[in-house]
């Protein structure tokens, strides 16, 4: 599935009113209301939408923005600029490269870990998956099923085992076997659970003992359907686990993932990947333009 297909499912509906207008149509109060609605319904924070709309209204009243397409383009540009400030490439600071996948329950960590492993293998790397979610019932089996389907090696923890020890051992195993990248799936945890966040902090620290400078990436997996709480999640995970990048999942539904703008704005974290479907190939590198176009579609 291509990114634009995955993101395009929701065109139509009330948005078609907004974007079905003719090119030369002038800006009206109704249009401004609809634009605001489109942004808010995409889960963009009201703290970003209100000032943004104030600017658009200003520019419209001074005559600098005259037509609907011009106004939409201006807003798209602002949003794309926000998403392209940071380097979205995958970092590597040594061998093996170490990637931790973290996030709240049900955001799609295990699936993301598997898809990322496939993507790296297809690019010529030799990834090693690590099932370090030793807490949730059958989480290990879930990643093992993916690993055998994709034919990617995996190191698994034992149920209720110490996740930090599993990751530590896996990095040593990767060294011995010559794997270029280690991708560790961690247990889902709510950012409000202090002791679970401490445990995650420990995994990050222990990783650094297995390889100087590791982890290279701590990817926070955010559910694309999440609302403003995603910002709280990102704050807390960044504080406790030094998040280096974001993955937004479940964008093949009708949600737009607009909450990410406030996160990028406040924490300066790059969005590295987007999850756009259930198949192994449905994890794609961030494409700011396609992401914003899904939010404010261009007329076909």
């Amino acid at each position: 599935m291509s990114l634009s297909d995955g993101l395009a499912k929701t065109r139509g509906g009330f948005l078609s009113r907004l974007f079905g207008r003719k090119a030369e149509e002038p800006i009206t109060p109704e249009f401004l209301d609809e634009l605001e609605e489109a942004l808010l319904r995409a889960d963009l924070s009201v703290s970003l939408v209100d000032p943004l709309m104030a600017q658009v209204r200003d520019l419209a009243s001074t005559g600098e923005l005259k037509t609907v397409p011009k106004a939409l383009d201006a807003v798209r540009e602002v949003l794309v600029a926000e998403l392209t400030k940071q380097d979205a490439s995958l970092r590597s600071g040594g061998k093996p490269r170490v990637i931790l996948v973290v996030g709240v329950n049900g955001s799609g960590k295990t699936t993301t870990a598997a898809k990322l492993a496939k993507r790296l293998r297809d690019a010529g790397e030799s990834p090693l998956l690590v099932a370090a979610d030793t807490f949730r019932a059958a989480a290990i089996e879930q990643l093992e099923t993916w690993a055998s389907r994709l034919d990617i090696p995996i190191v698994s923890g034992r149920p209720d085992g110490d996740p930090a020890a599993v990751v530590f051992d896996a990095i040593n195993a990767a060294n011995a076997r010559g794997n270029s990248t280690v991708i560790a799936d961690t247990a889902g945890r709510l950012h409000t659970k202090g002791h679970l966040m401490d445990e995650l902090g420990k995994i990050v620290r222990v990783t650094g003992r297995a390889r100087e400078g590791a982890p290279d990436e701590v990817l926070l997996v955010l559910d694309g359907t999440a609302g403003q709480n995603a910002i709280q999640q990102a704050r807390q995970f960044t504080k406790d686990a030094n998040v280096t990048g974001l993955v937004i999942t479940k964008l093949d539904g009708t949600a737009k993932g607009g909450a990410v703008f406030a996160i990028v704005h406040e924490l300066g974290l790059p969005v590295k990947y987007l999850g756009v479907g259930e198949k192994a190939d449905d994890l794609v590198p961030m494409d700011a333009r396609a992401f914003v176009d899904a939010l404010l579609p261009r007329a076909a």
């Binding site: 808010l40 995409a42 889960d43 559910d223 359907t225 999440a226 609302g227 999640q233 009708t254 949600a255």
Partner: peptide, 15 residues
């Protein structure tokens, strides 16, 4: 339904 869901909750539930 996940309590952390955003604006999409109503759309999904209606569907």
């Amino acid at each position: 339904v996940d309590a952390m869901t955003g604006q999409d909750a109503v759309e999904a539930a209606s569907a």
